[in-house]
Amino acid sequence: TQTTHELTIPNNLIGCIIGRQGANINEIRQMSGAQIKIANPVEGSSGRQVTITGSAASISLAQYLINARLSSE
């Protein structure tokens, strides 16, 4: 079954999640098997909405990979 998880990434950290020309986010997508959508910046908001869709296992793996990127910054 597909589930969806949403999280907010601070604007100053979204770059390390996306990577150069989307390299990091594509790697996270491939490794986790989850669909990951990053919302466009919202004016006045300090973060970007990230939506992860997939199986429970792929979502938790995607979250783990995202958190690993954030903590390495």
Rank of each mutant, 00 (worst) to 15 (best):
T1D: 15
T1E: 14
T1F: 10
Q2R: 13
T4P: 06
T4N: 08
T4V: 09
T4S: 12
T4Y: 12
E6L: 10
L7V: 11
L7F: 10
L7K: 03
T8W: 10
T8K: 08
T8I: 12
I9N: 01
N12G: 05
N12P: 07
N12F: 04
N12A: 08
L13W: 06
I14K: 01
I14F: 04
I14H: 03
G15K: 09
C16P: 11
C16L: 09
I17T: 02
I17R: 00
I17L: 11
I18F: 05
I18R: 02
I18Q: 01
I18G: 03
G19C: 02
Q21N: 13
A23S: 12
A23C: 13
N24C: 07
I25P: 01
N26S: 12
N26A: 12
E27P: 02
E27V: 06
I28H: 00
Q30G: 07
M31I: 07
M31L: 12
S32W: 00
S32F: 00
A34W: 01
A34G: 02
Q35G: 08
Q35F: 06
K37C: 04
K37M: 10
A39F: 04
N40H: 09
P41V: 06
P41H: 14
P41W: 09
P41E: 12
P41L: 10
P41M: 14
V42W: 03
V42P: 07
V42T: 09
E43P: 12
E43Y: 10
G44N: 08
S45N: 11
S45E: 12
S46H: 07
S46A: 11
G47E: 14
R48Y: 13
T51L: 11
I52M: 06
T53L: 05
T53M: 10
T53N: 04
S55L: 01
A56V: 10
A56D: 11
A57R: 13
S58W: 00
S58H: 00
S60H: 13
L61K: 15
L61D: 13
L61M: 12
L61G: 03
A62R: 02
A62T: 01
Q63Y: 04
Q63K: 15
Q63N: 12
Q63W: 05
Y64D: 15
L65W: 07
L65F: 06
I66A: 04
I66W: 00
I66M: 09
N67M: 08
R69P: 02
R69T: 10
S71G: 10
S71E: 12
S72Y: 08
E73R: 11
E73Q: 11
E73V: 15
